[in-house]
Each structure stands twice: as structure tokens, then as C-alpha cells.
Amino acid sequence: MTGRLLSRGMIAGISAALLAFVFARFFGEPQVNLAIAFESAKDLAAGDPPEPEIISRGIQASFGLLTAAVMYGAAYGGIFATIFAFAYGRVGRFSPRALSALLAAAAFVVFVLVPDLKYPPNPPAVGLPSTIGLRTGAYFGMIALSLCAAAASYMV
């Protein structure tokens, strides 16, 4: 049963990733291109040399974005299916649909909503470059704190 759930979870994650890819391609990439143009103009005005392009933007915006989205979708779908398989029958008397909705809502609150309220994730170009490590650590620390608080509240 767990193997079937895992494969179905991964397929669902890949399906969601394909939708996310289409959205990111048409709505996200134009904004990324504007940000790159802004940073390039700022660097040019400051007299800094342009950074070398290791991987072209065309590859990043197409095959790279698709590959990353599909890999993350498969991973998150597999993780969700594994957690569902563990929780089913152990967490109340919920139907499979209700349990999956409850787990998805709990994951959203724990991993997205609570950490974003305190430390929203910033792209590296926002803020001081010397604080990237500190901001990243604070954000992941907030995720860990949120996860611990959720586990404690479940135990209570």
C-alpha cells in the first residue's frame, strides 16, 4: 500500500509542478528579467564589471525551471504520501480525503505561513549581502521552531 501511495503522491506532485512551471514561465520570468535588468543597470552605473553568465537565461527559464519544478514536485509529493501513509489510521478517524486536506493545511501553516509572518524569505539581492547567511539561518530556524510548536500542540 505504501508503494502505491508513494507513486501516486509523486505523480500528484509532478502534476502540480507542471502547473507551477506554466505559471512561473508566464508570470514569474518576466519579473525575474526585470530584476536582472535593474541589477545590471545598477552595476553598470557603479562601474562594476558584469557578472559572467555560467548558464544562459534561456536554459534557466525553460529546461532548468522545468527540471527543478518536476524534481521538487516529485520529492514533495513523495514526502507527503509517506507522511499520509504513516498518519492514516493513527490520527483520529478521518477519511483519506479529510486526512490529506488536514495534513496539507497543517504543512502550509507550519512550513509557509508561520515562518513567513516573522521572516519572509528574501532573494539574495534584497538587503545587505553580508547578512544573507544570517537571514537564511533565521528563516530556517523559524521553520524548525514552527515545526516544534506544531508537534507540541499535537501532543497536548
Score class of each variant (00 low, 15 high):
47 G>H: 05
88 Y>Q: 14
102 L>E: 03
9 G>A: 04
7 S>Q: 00
99 L>F: 02
131 T>L: 13
118 K>Y: 13
146 S>C: 03
90 R>C: 07
149 A>E: 13
41 A>N: 03
65 L>D: 10
32 V>D: 00
29 E>M: 09
135 R>T: 10
138 A>Y: 10
89 G>V: 07
59 I>K: 05
77 G>K: 01
122 N>W: 13
47 G>N: 05
115 P>M: 03
93 R>L: 11
20 A>M: 10
148 C>S: 15
114 V>S: 04
55 I>E: 02
94 F>E: 15
101 A>D: 07
98 A>I: 14
16 A>S: 13
63 F>N: 10
132 I>M: 05
152 A>L: 14
11 I>N: 01
56 S>I: 01
12 A>I: 00
123 P>S: 14
142 M>F: 03
25 R>G: 05
103 L>T: 11
116 D>R: 00
91 V>R: 02
87 A>D: 11
26 F>L: 13
95 S>H: 06
80 F>C: 12
98 A>Y: 08
89 G>M: 08
7 S>G: 07
37 A>D: 12
125 A>G: 11
6 L>H: 00
26 F>K: 04
71 M>S: 15
51 E>G: 01
81 A>P: 07
31 Q>G: 09
114 V>P: 08
139 Y>C: 04
98 A>G: 08
8 R>E: 11
116 D>Q: 03
75 A>F: 15
134 L>W: 12
91 V>K: 02
37 A>C: 04
41 A>V: 06
39 E>V: 06
153 S>Q: 04
6 L>N: 02
87 A>T: 06
69 A>I: 00
24 A>W: 01
17 A>S: 07
5 L>A: 14
70 V>W: 01
69 A>P: 00
104 A>M: 00
72 Y>Q: 15
83 I>R: 05
14 I>E: 07
43 D>S: 10
96 P>A: 04
76 Y>I: 15
137 G>K: 08
